[in-house]
């Protein structure tokens, strides 16, 4: 996509923003300074005027934000504020929920992922996801990691592939090792790659899920409260990993814990009840000097 296209998109976005203001649905903060915030680097994901309805329930209201590449973006807010819904819009996992309807655009590297004819397989290869509770497959550790590449035909292990010499065990081994290494799990499991993944501890399972996601070589990694089911030590390992991953990947992480957001993220978006994005800025700015009174109340624990 050319530079002018991007500029156009941005202008459109500002327009629609003012429209939503005139309808009176959004509160005064929408026009505050942060709306022009564009994050630190090149924009990876641009979300524009995103509305989500679950049946008659309006779960997200006109959310717009630009997510910069190779950084950590935290989404925080009280339960039911729509932050997980927002996250699931970014790889179209909301398509699974049939009552959900999504309006607006999400642009990944200049391509709208909600236009007709989008290949969901290709999208999800590029936008990986890690879930709230660890969900390894009831298979061996090795199979868990190589699952994605196998399904996409990048690695072949079947009987036929072996017969015709297309199977490349060395490549699979290398990919498994590299992904586990990157997820800081290799040292712990290198001797038991053929054990069932369900035998790992919760923290290890979650790092396995991250490794599984990395094996597909995504650009963006979405994490939905990845540490909420884990103990403090496992949590801190995951947090270190997130910071580390941001060197190569665009990480978007939903979290319940403000400390976690403050520790790991470069920019933070605050969602408050009713599915509005209230403020989005550098993490430091949000936690030290937020624009909005509601965000300040929320952060200081007076509200939410």
């Amino acid at each position: 996509m050319s530079q002018t296209d991007t500029a156009e998109t941005r202008t459109n976005r500002t327009e629609s923003q003012s429209v939503s203001t005139t309808t009176g649905e959004t509160v005064e903060e929408t026009q505050a300074e942060w709306t022009t915030y564009e994050g630190g680097g090149e924009t990876k994901l641009a979300v524009d005027d995103l509305d989500v309805h679950y049946g008659s329930d309006h779960a997200l209201k006109g959310v717009s934000m630009d997510i910069p590449e190779e950084s950590v973006t935290a989404l925080i807010g009280p339960s039911g504020c729509g932050k997980s819904t927002f996250l699931r819009c970014l790889n179209r996992m909301n398509d699974r929920i049939r009552a959900a309807s999504v309006d607006g655009t999400v642009t990944l590297d200049g391509e709208n992922i909600y236009q007709d004819g989008v290949d969901l397989v290709e999208l999800r290869k590029r936008v990986g996801m890690v879930f709230q509770s660890p969900n390894p497959f009831p298979k061996s550790i090795r199979e868990n990691v190589s699952y994605g590449p196998r399904k996409h035909g990048d690695i072949e292990t079947g009987l036929l592939a072996r017969l015709t010499g297309r199977a490349d065990p060395g490549r699979e081994e290398a990919l498994v090792e590299q992904s586990l290494e990157r997820a800081a799990l290799w040292e712990e499991v290198r001797d038991r790659l053929d054990d069932n993944a369900l035998g790992l501890s919760g923290g290890q399972q979650q790092r396995l899920c991250i490794a599984r996601c990395l094996a597909v070589d995504p650009d963006v990694i979405l994490m939905d409260e990845p540490a909420s089911a884990l103990d403090p030590i496992a949590t801190s390992k995951i947090e270190d990993l997130i910071e580390d991953l941001a060197e190569d990947y665009t990480v978007v992480v939903v979290t319940h814990s403000m400390q976690q957001a403050a520790r790991v993220s470069d920019q933070t978006a605050v969602f408050l009840t009713g599915g509005e994005l209230v403020e989005y800025d550098d993490t430091e700015k949000i936690f030290e000097n937020p624009e909005s009174q509601r965000v300040e109340d929320y952060i200081s624990g007076k509200f939410g």
């Binding site: 996992m93 290709e122 999800r124 990986g128 969900n135 699952y147």
Partner: peptide, 23 residues
């Protein structure tokens, strides 16, 4: 959550059924 894990990796519905749900 198991099926979602497979779908989020970009597997198709049929792949998720035959490799995760059915086994």
């Amino acid at each position: 959550v198991m099926k979602n894990g497979s779908l989020a990796l970009g597997a198709t519905d049929w792949q998720s059924m035959t490799s995760i749900t059915l086994p």
